[in-house]
């Protein structure tokens, strides 16, 4: 099946009418909708990507909710609450998009709390300082936007449409993060140090959010052929760094890469070596907060079980009552 869409195939393979229609839609940059026929691999690949994205939004609430009760002004408290709440909303749209492909929310939730599903490793880093609210917005949400803006054109309709809404809100998130850092950099010496220290901690993990280098990214080629993904990991990472450099100058923070320099020939910012060992360690569950993040998710789920059961029992009783009334 995959041979029909891998670009370098030469041998003609007999394919069904439905598959031809699917290929034509992809070719024409059209949207695939939930009722359309799609190859099983396409469906699986999307469920994997969308549910991982949803889990990332949900786990991603934790490092920031860590500061809601301690936000240093009421305005910041309100913005932070709104932001974390947006993330819950993003998780909800994305779970719904995955449900259109036949995944169930219960299964996805169970996979997450059992530690079987992946989410973005970035959220396994801790937020020891208020400035981390700035760095998460500026660097983490910034990287997420670079990754996600092209997904607004993803070939699967419900995913692309969910991403349009999400990207609008993420863009606000990035700005508020930038503004937190700007305020700190214009503040006291202690505040400036707080901001620089935080940028030092988040810069490299943010670059790793784009995933491994292109020659080491197993799922990328197929996703690009299917137009789920539009740009390579390295391409997006480069775009992000090019965007960050002038913003760092406005802030007055130093990006913690001594090898970062402008390449006159390519007109791009060349970056230093990324320590992929750290990436693989965090991915393998040996990051600073992996255990804590999952435990919190599981605790919230387990401690809330009686509430969800109550709601279900109530709904059941209500519908039984309605039926009873109708029968009379």
């Amino acid at each position: 099946m995959t041979s029909t869409i891998t670009p370098d195939t030469s041998a003609p393979v007999a394919i069904s009418v439905e598959e031809q229609q699917f290929n034509d839609l992809i070719e024409a940059d059209s949207r695939i909708e939930p009722r359309d026929w799609m190859p099983e691999g396409y469906r699986k690949s999307l469920v994997r990507q969308i549910s991982q994205h949803a889990h990332s939004e949900i786990i991603g609430m934790q490092p920031e909710s860590n500061w809601i009760t301690r936000a240093p002004s009421l305005k910041r408290k309100a913005i932070l609450m709104a932001k974390v709440q947006d993330e819950a909303g993003h998780g909800l749209y994305l779970y719904s998009a995955a449900q259109t492909l036949g995944a169930t929310r219960d299964d996805m939730t169970d996979a997450l709390i059992a530690g079987k599903a992946r989410y973005s490793s970035i959220f396994n880093y801790p937020t020891p300082s208020w400035a981390d609210m700035g760095s998460i917005g500026w660097l983490v949400d910034g990287a997420a936007i670079c990754n996600q803006v092209p997904l607004c054109r993803a070939s699967y309709g419900p995913y692309g449409r969910a991403m349009v809404r999400i990207c609008k809100e993420e863009s606000f998130h990035q700005r508020q993060g930038f503004e937190i850092l700007l305020e700190l950099m214009q503040g006291t010496e202690e505040q400036r140090q707080m901001a620089q220290d935080s940028v030092n901690r988040w810069y490299w993990p943010a670059l790793m959010m784009f995933g491994p280098p292109d020659d080491d990214s197993p799922n990328s080629a197929q996703s690009m052929a299917w137009k789920i993904k539009r740009h390579s990991n390295d391409e997006l990472r480069q775009r992000f760094v090019n965007m960050l450099v002038p913003q760092a100058a406005v802030l007055g923070v130093t990006l913690p890469d001594p090898d970062l320099h402008f390449n006159e020939e390519t007109q791009q910012w060349d970056l230093g070596e990324i320590d992929w060992t750290e990436f693989h360690e965090v991915l393998a569950g040996r990051g600073p907060n992996n255990a804590q993040r999952l435990q919190r998710r599981r605790d919230a789920h387990d401690e809330g079980a009686w509430v969800r059961e109550a709601a279900a029992a109530y709904a059941h009783k209500q519908s039984a009552r309605t039926e009873e009334m109708a029968a009379k």
Binding site: I58, S65, M81, Q85, L92, E303, G304, V307
Partner: peptide, 17 residues
């Protein structure tokens, strides 16, 4: 505010928020 990310379901994280 302390409920956000700890609610019994995601819809309640949003509602209490």
């Amino acid at each position: 505010g302390a409920w956000i990310s700890r609610a019994p379901e995601l819809e309640e994280d949003v509602a209490l928020g």
